[in-house]
């Protein structure tokens, strides 16, 4: 019996490692995160709670009068890719999501569209709302009224006539899938810890505002631009995990084509951590503060905005 002790110790330790891990993931998750932000005239006070040491970024944005997304309508397709984005949104505290079949979209496109966005996690828009004319509902009922669009046009680049009302042409997009060296587009990419570097079918970086990475040949992996009165976000790449996560991060943070970073703070939150962001009084009405924890491995996100933002 003594001879088997060593073996049974290995069995027990291995089973313990597996069992504790399983229990902590599914039955008694010991992790918890929270945040509170108070937005004032000249700055924002934040307080963070994390059950274990965790990287954090707190960023204040000025949206320059453009309404950040408050409600997201997801246009469904067969791929199921939207499920990833919706879960990533939940993780970041954004739960005001409506799932709609293409045929149901028109119902949601009427009324006050300010602060609303539609996510198209696939190529061409449904014919019911856009077939290539600036008078179609996508423009007349939505973009002209200040609604936003998140478009994974990466899966299929349409022809020039289709893109003309957006002020774009097929050549505005990168059609080479070859690997390219990239660099960050700016503070939004860094502070939101964006990861999507693939610029295949991405928009030229001089059109709109690049949000994530820009390639040597001048294409952007994620771009926000003004379309009529609304924000249109083009998402390139191959619809992988990074793009789902970044798309959610941008929506959750309330990024618009006009968004600029006012101030940010980063560090390690352990237990309770607090601090302050500052900005000029002129930005107060448009301020959005976004808290994210986990760095490039996001475990928590939450947006706060000034009453009039």
């Amino acid at each position: 019996m003594k001879k088997n002790t060593g073996i049974m110790v290995v069995v027990a330790l291995a089973a313990l490692m597996v069992g504790i891990g399983e229990a902590s993931i599914y039955f008694v998750n010991p992790y918890s995160y929270g945040s509170e932000v108070s937005i004032g005239a000249y700055g924002a006070d934040y307080s963070l709670q994390a059950s274990a040491p965790t990287e954090y970024n707190v960023i204040s944005f000025d949206n320059h009068g453009v309404s950040p997304v408050e409600e997201l309508i997801v246009c469904l397709d067969d791929s199921g890719y939207h499920i990833r984005i919706v879960k990533e949104l939940e993780l970041r505290g954004f739960e005001n999501v409506v799932l709609a079949e293409p045929g149901e979209l028109l119902e949601y496109m009427s009324g006050d569209v300010s602060g609303k966005a539609i996510l198209f996690p696939f190529g061409l828009f449904p014919e019911e709302i856009y077939s290539g004319n600036a008078s179609d509902p996508l423009f007349a009922d939505w973009l002209d009224e200040g609604g936003s669009i998140y478009w994974f046009g990466c899966s299929e680049i349409p022809d020039d006539a289709y893109l003309l009302p957006f002020g774009l042409a097929a050549e505005s997009f990168n059609t080479s899938s070859a690997s390219e060296a990239v660099s960050r587009s700016g503070d939004i990419c860094t502070q939101l810890c964006l990861r999507s570097d693939n610029v295949y079918h991405g928009l030229r970086s001089d059109i709109g505002t690049p949000l994530a990475y820009v390639s040597e040949s001048g294409y952007s992996s994620i771009t926000a631009m003004k379309a009529s009165e609304g924000t249109m976000v083009f998402i390139a790449g191959d619809m992988d995990d990074d793009f789902a996560s970044d798309c959610a991060q941008i929506i959750a943070a309330g990024i618009t084509y006009a968004t600029t970073v006012l101030d940010y703070s980063a560090g390690i939150a352990d237990g309770s951590t607090s601090g302050q962001l500052t900005y000029s009084a002129s930005a107060e009405d448009n301020v959005t503060v976004y808290v994210q924890m986990g760095g490039y491995y996001t475990v928590y996100g939450q947006r706060f905005q000034s009453a009039s933002a």
Partner: peptide
């Protein structure tokens, strides 16, 4: 508290 980062000086390897 930190598991990793994306390092700017090495981003060209993605090419």
């Amino acid at each position: 508290g930190s598991y990793g980062t994306i390092a700017d000086p090495l981003l060209p390897v993605l090419g």
